[in-house]
């Protein structure tokens, strides 16, 4: 769907000054070999990465027994992530997955909030515009494919080829649906995140275009909320999928509890 809209003050009269521009589907292309990549996404991603890295460095630079300031904040985030992972994957298996789920959550969260809080449009690119990296489908597809790889890895590591038993476990009739699930999981993950963030930024953009001051505020606050929720949802679902792959259906479950 090649949307290519540039809306500049569509009341097309010389008396009206151009107020704002909204660009969808325009990208600041970089050519790497035969690939065309979206440069603005890279720039924003690098920014998010550096924010996270700097925060981690600041938090771990001077570790105290009684945490203060940045260390305390990051430990609080860490507790939150560990709790989330434990709730999804369960006490027994959750520990190795905390870094993965935590990275997903923090990255998506900071991406979303950077899109909602930072006046990216102050920086002018030759083409396209800076925004949250998660409003580009490529980012979210990459993230959700990582989740797919992670849960397949979890399943195979735990059960070997016995992992495939889960496809026919309650009844072989559901085999097609079970196979389909492996495709719908990354699809739904990526589209949910991408759709929410892009929609939020578009709504804000359109409102800003129409009424520049104050009217977009409720939507922006709502967008902040949605962004946080989407990060949480993505991390939670990743944990849930990994848990599903680890647990499987039926008898193994019973054995574990016996």
């Amino acid at each position: 769907m090649p949307l290519d809209i540039e809306m500049l003050n569509f009341l097309d009269s010389p008396n009206f000054v151009s107020l704002a521009a909204l660009e969808v589907g325009q990208h600041f292309y970089w050519h790497i070999g035969s690939l065309k990549v979206h440069g603005q996404v890279f720039l924003a991603t690098w920014f998010v990465m550096s924010v996270l890295i700097v925060a981690s460095l600041l938090a771990t630079r001077n570790i105290q027994q009684i945490p203060k300031g940045m260390q305390n904040l990051m430990e609080y985030a860490m507790d939150f992530i560990r709790e989330l992972t434990r709730n999804q994957i369960g006490e027994k298996e959750y520990r190795p997955w905390v870094p993965f789920i935590g990275t997903l959550f923090l990255f998506i969260f900071v991406c979303n909030w950077s899109g909602a809080l930072i006046p990216w449009k102050l920086i002018h690119l030759p083409e396209g515009e800076l925004a949250a990296p998660t409003n580009d489908i490529n980012t979210t597809v990459a993230l959700s494919l990582l989740v797919s790889i992670a849960y397949f890895y979890a399943g195979f590591k735990k059960k070997g080829l016995g992992y495939f038993a889960k496809y026919v476990q309650p009844t072989p009739i559901l085999l097609p649906i079970a196979v389909l699930e492996d495709f719908t999981k990354p699809l739904s993950l990526s589209f949910r995140l991408f759709g929410n963030i892009l929609a939020d930024e578009l709504v804000v953009g359109v409102l800003v275009l129409l009424v520049p001051l104050f009217v977009p505020l409720p939507v922006m606050l709502l967008g902040l909320f949605t962004s946080a929720i989407q990060a949480l949802v993505f991390a939670t679902l990743a944990g849930a999928y990994i848990h599903e792959a680890l647990e499987g259906h039926g008898d193994e479950h019973e054995e574990e509890h016996a």
């Binding site: 704002a20 520049p212 922006m220 606050l221 902040l224």
Partner: peptide, 11 residues
């Protein structure tokens, strides 16, 4: 106005 700075500052 285009960069939405005022609203972002408020948010």
């Amino acid at each position: 106005f285009e960069a939405n700075v005022v609203n972002l500052a408020i948010v």
